[in-house]
């Protein structure tokens, strides 16, 4: 890690009405590092990601990308730093009005102003990287299985060669084998690009595979962060409970209270 982290988040707050979701969150992600944020459902992982992407405005705090605070930037400037980002959405979020190859080429055509034939060639190359052939490129996203949609979505995220890639629950809804395939692809693609990766998941197998460092989000803050190798001896009761998936422990699920 160099001195200046790729992403530096300080004292991030976000509440919806009376519900506090992020409560003074701090997080650093180093250059070319892969950080996985773990945490229960509804712990605010997605909100964190959407704050960084600028889809939600935080109430207070700073998010620095390459040392520059991006909170509250006007739209035009935000679009400029968006070009550094790639994002794999939980449900794939493929554009169902466009064929697969155009989905992958979308960022190239729209934001990099590449010509369609050229963008198509790049898209086919990216699809090959995630193990999909030319036949698939002509299908519409609705004709693909869940695993294939995730792979197309991954190809779309890496097509613009982003500096930072975000993964929102990349293995949700996939069988264990397909999950492992996706995890391998994520590791391979981010390495090849030399990109920084920030993922959120509650799938521990996936976290162990793709993370350099793991951070646990609980109660709106990062309560523990450390190298993935240390996760089994974190000495933190919350982390222990989460990674071992026990119902008993310091984390009380909302079900038990109501």
């Amino acid at each position: 890690m160099t001195d200046q982290p790729k992403i530096r988040i300080r004292d991030l707050h976000k509440r919806f009405g009376s519900k506090v979701v992020l409560d003074g969150l701090d997080l650093d992600v180093g250059v070319a590092e892969s950080v996985v944020v773990i945490g229960g459902s509804g712990s605010g992982k997605s909100v964190l990601l959407k704050c960084i992407l600028g889809l939600i405005d935080p109430d207070s705090g700073t998010i620095e990308i390459d040392g520059r605070n991006v909170v509250g930037l006007p739209r035009a400037e935000r679009e400029a730093y968006m070009r550094k980002f790639g994002m794999l959405f939980q449900g794939g979020a493929l554009f169902d009005s466009l064929p697969v190859w155009e989905n992958v080429a979308f960022g190239l055509i729209q934001s990099k102003r590449m010509g369609r034939p050229e963008a198509r060639a790049v898209a086919l190359e990216k699809l090959a990287q995630v193990g999909l052939n030319e036949e698939v490129s002509l299908l519409s996203p609705a004709e693909l299985s869940g695993g294939m949609q995730k792979r197309v979505s991954l190809a779309r995220a890496i097509a613009i060669e982003p500096e930072i890639i975000f993964f929102d629950e990349p293995t949700t809804g996939l069988d264990p084998i397909m999950s492992d395939v996706i995890n391998d692809l994520i590791v391979k693609c981010t390495r090849e690009l030399g990109a920084t990766a920030l993922s959120i998941t509650h799938d521990m197998a996936s976290a162990r595979k793709i993370a350099d460092r793991v951070a646990m989000l609980y109660d709106g803050r990062i309560i523990w962060a450390g190298p993935v190798a240390d996760i089994d001896r974190s000495g933190n009761a919350h982390v222990d409970q989460f990674i071992n998936g026990r119902a008993e422990g310091p984390i009380q699920m909302a079900v038990r209270r109501s």
Binding site: K50, L53, G54, L55, R75, E79, M82, R83, F85, G86, M87, F89, Q90, G91, A93, L94, F95, D96, F106, G107, Q110, S111, R156, I160
Partner: peptide, 14 residues
């Protein structure tokens, strides 16, 4: 609801 609009934004498209 399928986050395609968010995906547009992340691909630098308004």
């Amino acid at each position: 609801v399928t986050e395609q609009i968010d995906a547009l934004t992340t691909l630098s498209t308004n």
